[in-house]
Nucleic acid binder design. Structure first.
Lengths: 343, 343
DNA sequence: CATGCTTCTGTGAGCGTTCACAGTAGAGAA
DNA sequence: TTCTCTACTGTGAACGCTCACAGAAGCATG
């Protein structure tokens, strides 16, 4: 007769229970659990059956205590949380990483380092070995947390090429420069010649690269650079709106704009509409990101799709490899032009 | 001479090292770590100093192994991930929960139960005790994961009143009905009498309650219910657009619309603009959520703000209380009318 | 002086797992 | 036969912590 444990949760079965049930030793069960080398088919089968019967699930705490690994990784977001949390790409990335990790049975711990206090706590938590590695989202340069983690030898994979960190840190990024090139070439192919740009923040690699791609293509097309056509933005909708106004004021003959993010492009569209410009007839507008904002905009935005699903998969792959002892690696993934109604 | 551990991460200090450094026993250090009862001021101080000096951080795995607690909680999203991941409120909620938990030094594990496979793995993971409790986001009715967790006695707090689960599960929700009442009263106060509604999905409590609030206020104002003014939606932008078209078709004299979400309200605005209706002159539009979509819309949306920061705080508070042995609780928080340009 | 109570401290056991090691059995080679 | 090698299995010792318990010291009370 089973007594159970009325009023509380039952004590879960241990490796010991499984061993007894299967008629083998703890060691054999453990071997089955960890890859099954040096176990006889008979034992293998008996243990499998016993696990199913008892509903055994390994106690990760006990395992971690002895292996020194935690078999979990952190997803760390430092600094300007608002920007990221409002960015739909961030969602896709977070979801992709979570799922890719889940496929490897690795839990993801979400860590937000907003305040100085949180920063300190998280750094201690990580360097104390409570996670085996970190997926890092922190576009801005010279991140002290990232630097500290790198110095402590914590496996680290950044999303986007990190500025300021040594070359020893892994990262996965879309090919921003090439994406920008594609877009500007596309605008050129439509016959546009006075092509403006609203840049991203220039303390981020993405911002820098996208601007560089723009400049490259114009140069290779033999079009003289005109700095009046270059206005700065910070990826926010508001800065797109302001940028477009400034652009129209400085270069009224502009016939196309490459905007370094879809969110900014939404702002650009608003400003152009207010100024009485028709899109794409008077001015063609190209975005970057292929975020939901791109399809929601009117007209729907032509944009550059970043392969976020592949980015998250690669981040996880590289991180797990690094945890497994491999060297840091940089992965750059191709982008894709998505043509809609704004060009 | 310190040998260190060249080529690898150093073994972190243990409670033993701290004890030796402070000249006390492990037990005393442990007591200091866990609240400091029954420790002399002198010992307290010595241990504190030793912790600072050695940089000691407790090994949570070892602790969990013996206490049976994991001192972490899961943030579980079941089912229609797209809907939530595109919902800005979800971000705010996730962030709020993460930060509230961080304040208690409790890590958050992000769990996405999309596929059947993931569902099973997550359920096992949780019931095996790898988290102490679960923050649940799953508006739809009859969630099998939630039911299983509840049956297993896992502390659980849902966001929004769950349908289908017994009354034994805690939840935190905004007062949807009262918010809807406020909005409709506001529209009445502007002199509108032909007030339509685009509802949320009616298999969710939020959808049901918001509609109920609408009906209540009209009834108490002595306005006869007109079912032509009620059109269904599913919180998506597209359904707002379709809903507005349908509404105009069925009741051309409509002079206000209460839309059960801002995202849908954006769609409504688009459709109204296309139909040549001026907002708010011809038709006033009220949203719900106060999401970024509300300020981004033109005209900016009058809407009902849900106190997401308080909701996440309360969810965490209730969950931790429940983990600590308290009974399940329901918390309902007041909403707030935010007036902008669409009414 | 004995007794009790409170406050504080150290000690040993044990949480559930992995790992190193020792040991067994059977096959094949000398 | 005897030895070696391979394939497999069991055992004790950790991992770092908490918890129960025993005991010491100080102080008031009988």
């Amino acid at each position: 007769m089973t007594m159970g444990n009325p009023g509380g949760r039952r004590r879960p079965p241990t490796i010991h229970d499984v061993a007894r049930e299967a008629g083998v030793s703890r060691g054999t069960v453990s071997r089955v659990l960890n890859g099954g080398h040096y176990v006889s088919p008979a034992a293998q089968e008996a243990v499998d059956a016993a696990i199913r019967k008892t509903g055994y699930v390994v106690n990760r705490h006990a395992r971690s205590l002895i292996t020194g690994r935690s078999d979990s990784v952190g997803f760390l977001l430092t600094e300007p949380q608002e920007r990221f949390f409002e960015d739909p790409n961030f969602n896709v990335l977070l979801r992709g990483c979570t799922q890719a990790l889940a496929a490897h049975d690795v839990p993801l711990l979400l860590m937000l380092a907003g305040t100085e206090d949180e920063r300190r706590r998280i750094t201690r938590y990580i360097t104390a070995g409570h996670v085996d590695g970190v997926l890092l989202v922190s576009s801005h340069s010279g991140d002290p947390v990232a630097e500290e983690l790198r110095a402590a030898g914590v496996p680290l994979v950044a999303c986007g090429k990190p500025i300021g960190l040594g070359s020893k840190v892994s990262y996965v990024a879309a090919d921003d420069r090439d994406g920008a090139r594609d877009m500007v070439r596309h605008l050129l192919s439509l016959g546009r010649r006075r092509i403006g740009v609203v840049t991203g923040p220039l303390d981020t690699p993405g911002g820098v690269e996208r601007l560089a791609g723009y400049r490259e293509v114009l140069a290779e097309a033999g079009i003289e650079a005109d700095e009046r056509l270059v206005v700065p933005g910070d990826y926010s909708r508001a800065s797109g709106e302001a940028g477009a106004e400034r652009l129209l004021e400085r270069a009224p003959d502009v016939d196309a704009v490459f905007v370094a993010s879809d969110l900014m492009a939404q702002g650009v569209l608003t400003a152009l509409q207010r100024a009485g410009k028709r899109v794409p007839d008077d001015i063609a507008v190209g975005g970057f990101d292929d975020s939901p904002a791109a399809t929601a905009a009117t007209p729907a935005l032509t944009t550059i799709r970043q392969p976020w699903d592949r980015i998250s998969n690669e981040m996880v792959r590289v991180l797990l490899a690094q945890i497994g002892g491999e060297d840091p690696a940089a992965v750059i993934l191709p982008t894709e032009l998505v043509r809609r109604d704004s060009t």
